[in-house]
Computed example of a mutant assay.
Amino acid sequence: MCCWRRVQNTYKRCGHAYDLPDQMIECDNQHCRFSPTHPSTCVPPVCTETCWQFRQFPQQYTPQIDAFCPVCEERRRG
């Protein structure tokens, strides 16, 4: 099912964390109302009885990057 992906990069060397813009992850399931493969001919009431009507919970990732964040890295160079 379609869902949002949330990523927050955490930089180990300075401890700062930055949220990246949320991304919509589209599935290819024709029974998901939000999917690009969902048929345009599938309409209520049949659609609400047979198709997924809600997006899944957001996928959340927090990569731990062994580096300074971009701001701290720029300060170190400057």
Rank of each mutant, 00 (worst) to 15 (best):
C14P: 01
A67T: 09
Q53W: 08
Q56Y: 08
F68W: 12
H31N: 07
Y18G: 08
H38F: 00
F34T: 00
C32Y: 09
Q64K: 10
C69M: 09
Y18E: 15
P39T: 02
R6W: 12
H16P: 12
Q56E: 11
W52V: 01
Y61T: 05
R6G: 10
R76Y: 07
R76T: 03
T41L: 00
V71R: 15
M24E: 14
C47V: 01
E49G: 01
C51L: 10
Q59R: 15
F54S: 15
V71E: 14
M24H: 13
C51M: 11
Q8D: 08
P39F: 01
F54N: 14
F54Y: 13
Y18A: 09
Y61I: 06
P58K: 05
C32L: 11
Q59M: 15
R75L: 06
S35C: 07
P63W: 10
T41A: 00
Q59V: 13
P36D: 05
R76K: 11
I65M: 02
R75H: 09
Q30T: 12
Q53K: 09
R5L: 12
N9M: 06
T48P: 11
V7H: 03
T62H: 06
N9A: 04
P63E: 08
N29W: 08
P21R: 07
C3M: 10
P63D: 13
T10S: 05
Q64S: 07
R6V: 12
C27G: 09
E74L: 15
R5F: 05
P39E: 02
P36Q: 04
R6A: 13
G15W: 08
R13Y: 02
C72T: 03
R33E: 03
C3K: 14
W52N: 00
P21F: 04
G15D: 10
K12A: 05
C69S: 11
D66F: 02
Q8V: 09
C3T: 07
C3Y: 12
T41M: 00
Q56D: 06
N29C: 11
A67M: 04
P44A: 01
Q56M: 09
Q59F: 13
H38T: 00
E26S: 11
I65N: 03
Y61K: 11
Y11R: 10
C69F: 12
N9Q: 07
W4H: 05
R6Y: 06
M24K: 15
V7Q: 06
C42S: 10
Q56N: 09
A17M: 14
P44K: 02
F57M: 15
C3P: 12
W4S: 03
E73K: 02
Y18Q: 13
G15L: 06
C69Y: 11
N9P: 06
P39L: 02
W4E: 05
W4P: 04
T48D: 12
T37W: 15
P63S: 12
M1R: 14
E73W: 00
T50F: 00
E73I: 00
Q60R: 13
